[in-house]
Every structure is written in structure tokens, then in C-alpha cells.
Design a protein around this nucleic acid. Structure first.
Lengths: 218, 218
DNA sequence: TAGATTGTTAATCGATTAACAATC
DNA sequence: TAGATTGTTAATCGATTAACAATC
């Protein structure tokens, strides 16, 4: 029923829901019981109106005069965003970034379990990364099948991005998080989300370029 | 003149410009001389119309019947997105992620020079990270002043995110790339761009939840 | 109760797409 | 030349914001 909703949720809404999740996590820790749409908006730089519409999308069940129950809202968001069901994830690319993510505690905390890291460079195969050992790409398919892996994180150089994507798809993965500095294509039925740090840094550079120009004129 | 433009560029346009930059980089390598808006759109999953409007924003100077000159376009995008001027960047947080980014070759290639990595944990201060050594937070201000640092990358646990942001601002930084799993506030005049991997992974989880539901019904 | 806050509808705003004259 | 491709204008689409009746 929840997921029925997610299916038709516009992307901007999904993005904000992830922010509501971390907000409600913090409020839960702080022991806050109720928050209003205005509280959430203030904390995250949104209007209360936007927050209410987003939460109406998922039938969050706000209460007139009190707002939203933090615990209940947090639970709904966890369910919707898969933070409570234990996802099995593989990382492809055992470079600096891939290895760092494999050891990053936050994933585990939000129920994304890194259950394998792969590379095709003989120099790194067999290397220990936290509790894992870098495995050769040839073992990807079996690992996915045996562990029921649904997601793959792509952390390879851009030249290899499309090829490795195809291998992930062939291995039976359902969704890919692309960290590589390249646009990759996936077939119908495979989900793709991009998260490229360099691109965001370039965005920042563009903003600063602009800001400097304004100063220059002032 | 270029930057005059950037100042008023809508965010979705800036995001796509970063994609055009990596596309033109690849085409340059491949020795392609001209590309049409349709070529670019096909490669990146956009309509030619969107591409033409974006490029008109920056007066890319397309040529009727031939399209855009790859070399010229690439140069314009490099300028606009700051890939040709040598930015000095500091990283705050010498955990797995911060250290991985400090050693990530792609930044250097696109002229973001990591010129310092900071942390306040005595256990990591002094640790070698590539060519750098982890410095204590107390040295941040001086490093920013001496090196003319404009950007900071925030790679700390979410509890520390706001505090460290304030320290970066106090140190005189102009723009922040936030990798921490928390919403941070910056004062007027400081640019902020978010790049949170965990959030994107949650987005992917939401998509997969939805896809499974569809399958379940089919 | 009165005041506060929701959910929802309508209005606004902005982004994307379509269409096409200009033109090399 | 004819066909291809731009830049730009107009049309569509979607997302955000404002407004307000319902209500605890």
C-alpha cells in the first residue's frame, strides 16, 4: 500500500522525503513527540505548504492542532525509503572511494548492508577491506544470485562505467547507484540514481564564479 | 561576461551543463569535431530542444547545419564551471570518505586541488593521506587565509555537521560541498551544494520498493 | 472556547517540449 | 540547391506556493 504510493511519487517529493527521514531521526533522538509542517519546513529550508503536500502524498496522517507524530512519521518514512528491511548491496570498484564506502558506518545504520566488493584489477583482488575481501568481477554473478543482492554501487573510473554497468545488469541487479563521472544507460526495468561528487563540485564552482562577478561590480 | 550569465542560470540548467562538460571531454578525446543538440540529447537522455535552450543560455554559438564545435563548447563549459582555473579546496573530516576524496585523482584532473585535510580527532591528526597530513581544526583559518582557499568539503558525521560548517564559514570559506547526512545552514553569501550518497541510496530503495510492488501485481 | 494546524483546492510560477522561421 | 540544424517563441506540463474550510 505504501509502495503503491512510492511508484507514482514525483522525484522532487522522494528527495525531500529522504530529508524528512533524517530530520525525524534527529527529533526521535531528541525525544520530540510532535512536529508541525512549519517546524519541518523551518529546519530544512522549505515552506510548510510544500511539506504538507509531500506528507499528504504518503498519507502521513497529520493531526489538526498538533501536527505530525514524530515516531509514526519516522516509521512510515523508514518503510517507504527502505531503511527498515535490510538491503544487500555490492560495490564495484575497489579504489579509494569504493573502499571508503565499504567501510562507511552510515550505510549499515540505515540498513544497507555491503555484502561484497568487486574489481578486475589483479593488484587489488584479495585485498582486505574492513570485513570483506575484494573479489574478482567473475564472481559477481554468483554473489548476486546467492545473496539476493538488489543494488550495486558503481565506483569505477569513467572509462569503465558503461561496461561495468552492463555487467551489473547481466548479473541480475535491480538498481544502480552511479558514482562514476559518466552517464550510463540501463535497460528498462533497472533503476538508476546518480550521485556524482565531482559534478556537484562543479556546480559549486559555477556559483562561486557568479558570486565573484557580483562582488567585482559592487 | 560568462559569469554574468552563470549568476542567473537556473539550477537544473547548471546541473545539465556539468553533464555536457563530461560529454564534450569524451568527444574531444575521441576527436569528434561537431555535435548536434540531438547527438548530445541522445547520449545523455535529454531532448534536443532542452539541450538547445541550455546552450542558448550560455550563448554557445551553435552553427546552423553543423551543430556545436566540440572544442569550443568544451572550453566554454570549462570556464563556466571552473574547470580551468585551479580551485583550492580543503576537506574537513579525515574519516574513510574524507581520506578517499583527498586521494581521488578526478578532482585534480578537473582543477580542484585538495590543499588540506582537517580533523579534530587527536587519533588521526598528523596521519599521512597521500601527499597531505591531517591537520587540527585550529589550523583551518590560517590555511584558508594563506592559500586563498575558497571551497570546503564537509565529510564529517552528521552530529558535527553544523558546528563544522560554522567553523568553515568563520574561516572565510565561500562555498561548501556537504557530504554529511544532515541539513546545514549557511549565512547569506556562502554557497552550499549538497551531495549525500546515503540519501541517493534511499531514493534508489524507494524506486525498488515500488518496482517490486508492480511485479507483485503482475 | 479560541487558536493552531491540517488537507486540499486554486493560483502562480518555472521548466520542458514542440514548432518553426532563419539560414548555412 | 536541398536538407539539416540552430535559436527563439509559444504551448504544455508539472511543481511550488497561497489560501482557506474543516476541526481538534
Amino acid at each position: 500500500m505504501n509502495t503503491r504510493i512510492c511508484e507514482t511519487l514525483p522525484e522532487p517529493v522522494v528527495r525531500r522525503l529522504t530529508k524528512y527521514l533524517s530530520y525525524t531521526a534527529r527529533m526521535t533522538e531528541e525525544g520530540v513527540e510532535w512536529v508541525s509542517s512549519a517546524d519541518i519546513g523551518d529546519a530544512l529550508g522549505l515552506t510548510g505548504s510544500t511539506v504538507r503536500q509531500d506528507l499528504a502524498h504518503i498519507s502521513a496522517g497529520g493531526v489538526t492542532h498538533r501536527g505530525y507524530n514524530v515516531e509514526r512519521l519516522h516509521k512510515m518514512l523508514r518503510e517507504l525509503l527502505g531503511a527498515d528491511r535490510g538491503w544487500c548491496v555490492v560495490i564495484v570498484g575497489a579504489g579509494n572511494l569504493g573502499c571508503a564506502l565499504a567501510q562507511h558506518g552510515d550505510f549499515d545504520r540505515y540498513s544497507f548492508k555491503i555484502c561484497g566488493i568487486f574489481d578486475n584489477d589483479p593488484a587489488v583482488i584479495g585485498k582486505k577491506v574492513g570485513d570483506l575481501k575484494v573479489a574478482p568481477m567473475s564472481e559477481l554473478g554468483e554473489a548476486v544470485r546467492v545473496n539476493g543482492v538488489e543494488m550495486g554501487i558503481l565506483a569505477v573510473p569513467c572509462e569503465a562505467a558503461q561496461e561495468v554497468t552492463d555487467e551489473l545488469v547481466a548479473a541480475g541487479i535491480h538498481g544502480i547507484l552511479n558514482l562514476a563521472y559518466a552517464h550510463v544507460r540501463v535497460p528498462e526495468g533497472v533503476a538508476l540514481v546518480n550521485a556524482r561528487i565531482l559534478e556537484r563540485l562543479q556546480e559549486l564552482a559555477c556559483l562561486l564564479n557568479a558570486a565573484e562577478q557580483v562582488e567585482g561590480r559592487a
